[in-house]
């Protein structure tokens, strides 16, 4: 049995505002194991981002608990990578300075980490842009910088909230493939929210389907694809014979009416 990284126990969340209360999520139970990437798909506004914020310890759930590596997350022990739809690079910092932002805030920045940042940037094809500013990079490169900024902190696991949805289609395929390969190579555990069913199947080991708001877990689907040796990358996985089957299954479960 693999180690459990995240333990989500019966989470519920209700937002209160003057207009009334909004029950965003309800009775969510989920364990995430080391080295796996779990996808979350669900209708718009059902509470996916809320769930991620709770797991990251940024907001308190109304009920239930979340344990990361057996501990409750708080500001002092938080070690979770978070990636957003927008890359959130700081325009006034060059790429290297952007990559070390988290270290700087945690007071860990030293020459060793600078060295590591340079190495990561070199490895991921950004070596020539270390001293460039974000505005000089393409959308895909910027999202790669955001990933390096996350990975350099060696997080226990990663929360990815539609990280590719702001990119154009081709870039999106290329970058999701690349990032998927990186995450697997580094053995990272992650939770990926996406609206793109194909992306979820190609990147994830399991896909959680959420219901309309309040979000509950409708079904968890294990993705088992047969890929030829050496083609077990997100792009390769799209060619697996079972791909269509999973696509249809998730699409039906989502039950989207327009």
């Amino acid at each position: 049995m693999k180690n459990t990284v995240v333990e989500i126990n019966n989470i519920g969340m209700t937002y209160h505002s003057l207009e009334g209360e909004t029950e965003a999520i309800k009775n969510i139970d989920l364990n995430i194991y080391e080295g796996e990437i779990v996808g979350i798909v669900g209708p718009s506004g059902c509470g996916k981002s809320t769930l991620l914020s709770i797991i990251a310890g940024l907001i308190e759930p109304s009920s239930g608990t979340v344990l990361v590596k057996g501990q409750k997350v708080c500001r002092s022990n938080r070690n979770i990578g978070y990636m957003f739809q927008k890359d959130q690079l700081l325009e006034w910092r060059n790429i290297l300075q952007n990559v070390v932002l988290g270290l700087e805030i945690q007071g860990k920045l030293n020459s060793q980490y600078y060295e590591k940042a340079r190495n990561l940037l070199n490895n991921y094809g950004l070596g020539d842009f270390i001293h460039s500013y974000p505005s000089q990079l393409s959308g895909g490169m910027r999202q790669r910088v955001a990933l390096i900024r996350t990975l350099i902190l060696e997080p226990d696991f990663l929360l990815l909230d539609e990280p590719f949805s702001a990119l154009d289609y081709q870039t999106r395929l290329a970058i999701s493939d690349e990032i998927g390969v990186i995450l697997k190579k580094e053995g990272k555990t992650g939770l990926l929210v996406t609206h793109d069913i194909a992306e979820a199947i190609s990147l994830c080991d399991r896909v959680v389907i959420l219901s309309n708001r309040p979000a509950t877990i409708k079904e968890i689907i294990d993705i088992k694809l047969t890929c030829p040796e050496g083609r077990n990358t997100p792009l390769g996985r799209r060619e697996a014979p079972e791909f269509r089957y999973y696509f249809n299954k998730i699409w039906k479960e989502l039950d989207i009416h327009v």
Partner: peptide, 19 residues
């Protein structure tokens, strides 16, 4: 989201202001 990002780094309010 940018403030959220800084919070995941464990930033203090003062750091959010300054950075």
């Amino acid at each position: 989201d940018l403030i959220k990002l800084l919070n995941t780094f464990g930033a203090t309010k003062f750091q959010i202001l300054r950075k």
